[in-house]
């Protein structure tokens, strides 16, 4: 248990006070957003202090349900983030197994090159990648939105480490039974990597869902926007917006799916960063 802040009376109260104060600072912006989203736009136009008291209304939420744009963006986000996650898991597992277990020429050199890829920031490649995709006619398409996410080296690094940690006797025994490499990979090793798959999966999904840079420059037609870019496009026109309450309702609407994913997968997220330490 925590030694720096022991369980002595006043110290314990101080701990509680500090936590509640910090927690309030943390959630105050979120609550403010929720309150604004529950007010009618005309009332907010007079003064936003109205948001602190009744009456509240659901008219902005009704308006969102009627506009089709937001649902299209939601669909795009689910599709792009989902397929990116599946793609990254597949490529990383295969490559991780290859780098960790199999012999082929230049294996270690290639692995170092992949590790170097971890240091390349998105901005160093984005201009030429944008040109390349323009040449191939991939902008404003789902492959155009998904492919760049598959190149991130982190998954390969993670899966290689994970495969290396599995005792070699396991697959050697299977190999003696004359099983093929693919079979050993699929039947023996892959099931053992499920915790790592969960970790990599949730982080890839979050990163793809929240990615802003690439969809911003690749998807220029509103029907190909992801939720992240779509919300940004209504925000850019902040001055002539249809209403503050409506804008904040969009923010709430866009955060709900990812917060649900977070609550549902919280265990894996915590385990991901913490090893098995924090439960």
């Amino acid at each position: 248990m925590s030694k720096p802040f022991g369980h002595m009376g006043w110290r314990h109260s101080l701990w509680w006070l500090a936590l509640i104060a910090l927690g309030l600072i943390m959630v105050a912006p979120l609550i403010w957003t929720l309150m604004l989203s529950l007010k009618s736009n005309s009332e907010l136009l007079r003064s936003t202090t109205n948001a602190f008291h009744l009456p509240y209304t659901l008219e902005n939420y009704a308006a969102i349900l009627k506009s089709s744009g937001v649902f299209r963006w939601l669909f795009n986000s689910v599709l792009v983030a989902g397929l990116t996650t599946i793609g990254v898991l597949t490529l990383s597992s295969l490559a991780g197994y290859g780098f960790a277990r199999l012999e082929f020429p230049f294996r270690d050199v290639l692995f170092v090159v992949v590790l170097f890829g971890l240091a390349i920031p998105e901005q160093a490649v984005i201009i030429t990648r944008h040109q390349m995709f323009a040449g191939l006619g991939l902008h404003n398409s789902y492959p155009g939105l998904i492919l760049p996410g598959l190149a991130a080296p982190f998954g390969v690094f993670l899966m290689t480490q994970y495969f290396k940690a599995i005792p070699k006797e396991l697959d050697e025994a299977a190999m003696l039974d004359n099983a093929s490499r693919l079979k050993v990979f699929w039947k023996v090793l892959l099931p053992l990597t499920l915790p790592a798959q969960a970790t990599l999966g949730i982080f890839t999904f979050l990163a793809a869902w929240n990615d802003y840079w690439w969809p911003l420059i690749s998807a220029t037609r509103p029907e190909m926007f992801t939720l992240t870019v779509g919300i940004a496009s209504s925000q850019i026109n902040f001055a002539q917006t249809s209403g503050l309450g409506y804008l904040m309702t969009q923010a709430v609407f866009a955060s709900v799916p990812i917060l649900i994913v977070y609550v549902f997968f919280q265990k894996y997220i915590v385990r991901a960063v913490a090893g098995q330490a924090v439960r």
Binding site: T33, W209, N210, Q235
Partner: peptide
């Protein structure tokens, strides 16, 4: 877990 567009909308 929030995206930058939501964070900026809230904080504005």
């Amino acid at each position: 877990v929030l995206s930058v567009t939501i964070v900026t909308l809230i904080w504005r």
